[in-house]
Every structure is written in structure tokens, then in C-alpha cells.
Design a protein around this nucleic acid. Structure first.
Lengths: 195, 195
DNA sequence: AAATACACTAGTCAGTTGACAAGTGAAAGC
DNA sequence: GCTTTCACTTGTCAACTGACTAGTGTATTT
């Protein structure tokens, strides 16, 4: 009973931290602002997460857990010899994940070059597995193209959703609309894995 | 004589502000940190630029002036009926610009949804013209594909360079290397405008 | 029913923030 | 040569930062 309460509070805090941090970045967000979003006292943050840094890591863990849940199994199942349609399906799911979680890409981009330790931790703990799966899935490409495909697809599939407010103001289309997501997925899939 | 000094100082400050702000974001950077980079006193920032916000705008102006210098003329020259090779050349130059100025894309991404006024100013003043040129250049595509092409190419051509430190740590390739830039330009150009 | 455990709050700390006020000194104008 | 201009520095301000300490109240254990 008390444990359940504890977990739900921690979750509420991580959720608030994640959304706050992906709006303005780690350093720009105060623990008090996060606490206010989570509707708890500021002291409670340092109670559950010793430092702001630890809270950042908890937010990262949550983010990659979400990604794994959404595309992990599909991505691992598709190897270099898989039929193109399977690959296309995984790419479509990745686009959809980025549309539903624009904070994922923002979190990665906002983590700048300034903090070596956080960056290294992020690469080793979370980024490397994803890159390995992607490499395996796209193993049909020439090996030297893999990093380019990874970053090209990563950027191409995310920016339109992660720069949401700018996108609708600029192009008039609504990046949250189902039709937009669908069209973006189709557009990219056709580029990367032609039928 | 004094005017020249004034201009070079202002430039030094804008330069420092730009590099600092694109590392950690607007709110996370202190005016004192910027002043230190520019090797001037903190008070001088408020002397030349009344507020931190004004300094941000000056940084944006400089960034888009750089872009215009690098690709503006080429982009405006290529219309919907231009031969593919011309379009390919502009895309290659855009990739190169993003490689040489990874701070450009970072600046755009770090500007989150939090500040309406800055975002609107950025769209109307700088983003809209670029989007219009791009639309015109890619006028051979179905109109409804234009926003998707814009964001897909924008993201695909930038992230590998703007996430520099993460990229070399993750993939082992050096995004600053000439060969990498060339390869990325070729890879993307072939995707977007097949020969 | 008394004792314990612990999720949680309030208050406090030194250090940092953006902006401003007052002063300095060297170049430009007369 | 005297005055004015102005790029620039120093010092100061209230407001805010992350982390810590000392508590409080309620559920669980004995």
C-alpha cells in the first residue's frame, strides 16, 4: 500500500521532470519548477532522487523504456535478410513512436556536448543498444552507409514532431494529426526502403 | 576608429553568445559565462544589448546571415523546373553548411515551445523565407509532400553534425571529417533526388 | 496500545542569476 | 587645450538556484 504510493509519486515526479527538461533543457529547469508540475514539495525531489542529475537519469531510463516497449521487439526481430516489407514496417513504427513521443528526440538533442559524464552514460547505457539493433536491421546496406542511414532516418523521422510548435506556425500543417503522421511515415519509408 | 572597435566587440560578444547558447540553450547560459568567453565584462553585454533576449535575437540574425551567405543565392536560383543536377547541388551545399555550422540546427532545436514571442519572431523573420525558397526549389514534388521533404531533409542533413560528440562516441566515425561530410551529402542527395 | 518506519513538508544555506547605477579613461570635436 | 562623447568596468540589487536539516503525521509492526 505504502509502496504503491511511493512508486506512483516517483513516477509523477519523473514524468514532470521529463516534460520540463525536454522543453527547456536540463540546466534551464529548476527543481522547484519540476516539483510544482508534479504537485509536490521541492524537498521531495531530493528525497526520492538525491540529485538533479539522478533525476535526469531516471527520466532517460523512462524514455528508453517507452521506446523499447513501442519498437524494441519489432526491431530485434528484423535482421539483414528480412524481406523489405518487414523493414518498412519497423520504420513506420519508429516514425509513429517519434510522433507520439516528441520529447524523445528533444531529450537527445538538448543533451549538449557540455557534460561528458552524462553523455557517456547515455551512449553506453541506452544509445548503443539501439544503434546495434538498427545496424543489424539495416545490414543489407553497405556497412559504411549505416551511420549515415541511422542519423539521416533519426533526424528525418523526428524533427517535424519535435519542433511541433514551429512546424505548425511555419507550414500550416498539424504535426499531431493522424494524417500527417501517416504521410510522414509513408514518405520516409519510401525514401529509405523503396518498394 | 572607435566605431570599428565597437563593431568588433559586438561581434565578439554575439559569437560567444551563439556558441554558448547552442551548447546548453538560452536559459541555461548565464550572461557572465558569455562575457567570459568573449573576454569582456558582464556589464558590457547589457551595454551593447539591453537584455539577454536582445542578444539572442542578434545571435539568430548572425546565424541566418551565415546561412544566406552560404546557400541563399543558390537556393533562390533553382526553381521547380530546374534540372535535377542543380537541385542536387543545392542539397549538397545545404549538407555542407550544416556540417560547418552544427550550431545552426542546434539553435533551432533548443528554442523550445516555452517562449511564444521568440518563436513567432523566429518563424516570421527567418524561418519563413527559407521555407519559401525550399518550397519553390522542390516545386517538382507533390505539394502535400513539401513540408515532409522540408523537415525530413532538415533533420537528416543536420543531426549527425549537431550531435557531434554523441555521434563519434556511438558510431566511431568522425562527423567533422571531410570524407564523412562528403558521404553524408552523397547519401542524402541520392535519397532525395535520385539520379 | 506503544514503538517504529518512512513518505513527505518547511525552512535555510551559500552561490548564482539578469539587470542596473555609478564611475573611469581614452579618443573625438571644438 | 579644454570639453564632450562613449566604450567599458566595477559594484550592487532582489530574485532564484540545488542541496541540506529538522521536523510532522500517518501507516505498519510488535
Amino acid at each position: 500500500m505504502r509502496d504503491k504510493q511511493r512508486d506512483s509519486t516517483r513516477e509523477k515526479i519523473v514524468e514532470a521532470a521529463l516534460s520540463a527538461m525536454t522543453e527547456t533543457g536540463f540546466d534551464a529547469v529548476s527543481t522547484r519548477a519540476i516539483a510544482q508540475r508534479a504537485e509536490v514539495s521541492q524537498g521531495l525531489l531530493t528525497y526520492h532522487f538525491a540529485t538533479k542529475d539522478a533525476l535526469w537519469r531516471a527520466a532517460a531510463d523512462r524514455l528508453f523504456a517507452l521506446q523499447d516497449e513501442a519498437v524494441g521487439d519489432a526491431m530485434q526481430a528484423v535482421g539483414p535478410d528480412a524481406p523489405p516489407e518487414q523493414r518498412r514496417e519497423v520504420l513506420r513504427r519508429l516514425v509513429r513512436f517519434n510522433a507520439e513521443h516528441p520529447e524523445f528526440f528533444r531529450f537527445l538533442m538538448l543533451q549538449g556536448p557540455e557534460d561528458d559524464e552524462r553523455r557517456t552514460w547515455l551512449i553506453e547505457t541506452h544509445l548503443m543498444p539501439v544503434y546495434t539493433w538498427f545496424s543489424n536491421m539495416m545490414g543489407n546496406l553497405p556497412p559504411q552507409d549505416i551511420p549515415h542511414a541511422f542519423y539521416a532516418f533519426g533526424g528525418a523521422s523526428s524533427v517535424i514532431f519535435s519542433a511541433q510548435a514551429k512546424c505548425s506556425g511555419l507550414t500550416g500543417i498539424d504535426p499531431k494529426a493522424e494524417a500527417t503522421i501517416q504521410r510522414h511515415a509513408d514518405y520516409l519509408t519510401n525514401l529509405m526502403v523503396p518498394e
